[in-house]
Design a protein around this nucleic acid. Structure first.
Lengths: 120, 120
DNA sequence: ATTATTGTATTAAGTGATTAGTACAGTAAT
DNA sequence: ATTACTGTACTAATCACTTAATACAATAAT
């Protein structure tokens, strides 16, 4: 049985995740105009091509859209953003629990662990 | 401020993680002989060179060691394995909680979320 | 009108990871 | 002794990602 070897994280993917987080966290709000590709690239410390790739890929999800020459904007669909957050949280929690169960921890043991680490 | 863009996961790194998990889970026990580089490569579905790279890298941690021509073996130091497991668990829990807190969840909310997902 | 800014497109080069193929020397099994 | 297996070494080719540099057309700002 082949192992699972599909967690490569290229920079442009990490950029997408970063932008998704910013949107979900409300740093960018529905309808907001994003900084230009070039400015974002400078902020992130990456090549404009890489930022362009991240943005145009992110675009295919509908979360952002570009107005050819006036800029790029966050979706006005607040429900989409809320759903994205739910989805991101769900994935993160499930991955965590799966990982812990793989190590042999029971549900209660996982809860105890989280309790311990939360109190710091 | 530059973004944090350092989570690339090449295959040989994922192999290391996979092997660490197998050791921590007791699939390989202290002193056990590992399958040959070529067999492991076939198992994993990767090139022998890639497996060799993963193994020789893992070697530098002391978790495994090679006897030139007779094979490669898991450390007999059981304490090292226990410590590795603790460390892996700690990293996973902390990363999870940090991620959740970034999304604005409080300690109690995180616990509630875990509780929900654990019961499935 | 002129200028700056926008997203987008294109070509080229460089880098790291991976695969492929081959080879060598030492040990184990027979 | 012979054979098979072991880790290891080496070169070459390929691929995806990234960077670099440049260019174009449409809009915004002046």
């Amino acid at each position: 049985m082949p192992w699972d070897l599909n967690s490569g994280n290229p920079v442009f993917v990490q950029i997408i995740e970063h932008l998704q987080d910013d949107i979900v966290l409300g740093i960018y709000k529905p309808g907001d105009k994003l900084p230009s590709v070039r400015d974002l690239a400078t902020d992130a410390g990456v090549n404009p091509n890489t930022m362009q790739r991240a943005l145009s890929t992110l675009e295919s999800t509908g979360l952002v859209h570009s107005e050819r020459t006036s800029g790029r904007f966050i979706t006005e669909d607040n429900e989409m953003i809320i759903e994205l957050k739910k989805s991101l949280v769900k994935v993160q929690v499930e991955q965590f629990i799966n990982g812990m169960e793989k190590y042999g921890f029971t549900g209660n043991e996982i809860l105890e662990l989280v309790k311990q680490y939360v109190k710091k």
